[in-house]
Design a binder for these strands. Structure first.
Lengths: 148, 148
DNA sequence: CTACAACAATTGTATATACAAATGTAATTC
DNA sequence: GAATTACATTTGTATATACAATTGTTGTAG
């Protein structure tokens, strides 16, 4: 992936700007791949993230602020995100009995089933995106990311 | 930036998934910083990108497909993006005399002036985001990104 | 126990983005 | 040169997201 070729510029870009542009270009590619995997399941990247968080709860219900806190990309409207998952039958929401301000959100068996299918595809996509990188290079990347 | 701490999970994430999540987390941070720099100027990241492309044209007008092709994040509606810049007086659009299907978009002196101010702030922000990385590490990052 | 502050989620509204269909123009084919 | 195809942009519409204001509930100070 050559930055100058992709954004079609002839002039040399300063190393710092170049790195950040490069960063965003790769990120766009990652999101594009993930989105295309998720599309047939009619689930957005954010919705997928919520489903995975809920499964990670192992039965324990999560409330909205917990979800928001754990999401990779925090967004300002988790209520409506959950609304969509409810319509699809993938999650279930009840008001918390001990504190009626809160809600308890859980993943349904149907949601778990779909999530399992998605996971397989996503896992393949991940391997494909990273096919040119060795485990050592992945470690290296993670270490560099830690410096941000 | 510790991934597990940020997304608040206790379990170990496989290296591949972890890298991609880490990638997105850092990207979100970058976008967040950029957006907050741009906010006072009432210019979005995409609009900023268009302005920079137009300046890079050095007077030569650009048409919509050229803009779209050169944008870091391609979006499906460059028309409306340009509309907003016109309202702000930062760019100018006329239909191309030699081919009336096309349009000719140029940056205005006002646009150039604002862009210069933004550039200074963005440059500072870039340095700040990357303050913990040496030039060598930046090169290393770019090389790793090339493998995607 | 009443008033007030803090909390958690929801709703309203404006803007942004994705995708498809439509418009207007130019080039090509017969 | 009329019909068709391809091109470049615009418009329509549905959905997504950001941000602020609102609602309903709980905790707390006096």
């Amino acid at each position: 992936m050559n930055v100058e070729k992709i954004i079609k510029t002839e002039k040399e870009i300063p190393l710092e700007s170049r790195t950040l542009i490069h960063f965003m270009l790769v990120n766009n590619k990652i999101i594009e791949v993930f989105s295309s995997v998720l599309k047939p399941f009619d689930v957005s990247l954010q919705q997928f993230n919520v489903l995975r968080i809920l499964r990670g709860q192992k039965g324990r219900p999560a409330n909205l602020s917990t979800l928001n806190e754990r999401m990779v990309t925090k967004m300002s409207n988790t209520t409506r995100l959950v609304d969509k998952l409810i319509v699809k039958g993938f999650v279930c929401r009840i008001t918390c009995p001990s504190n009626r301000r809160k809600v308890e959100i859980t993943i349904t068996p149907e949601g778990k089933k779909v999530l399992k299918q998605i996971d397989e595809q996503i896992s393949k996509a991940e391997k494909n995106i990273l096919k040119n990188l060795t485990p050592k290079e992945l470690e290296q990347l993670n270490n560099l990311f830690n410096k941000f």
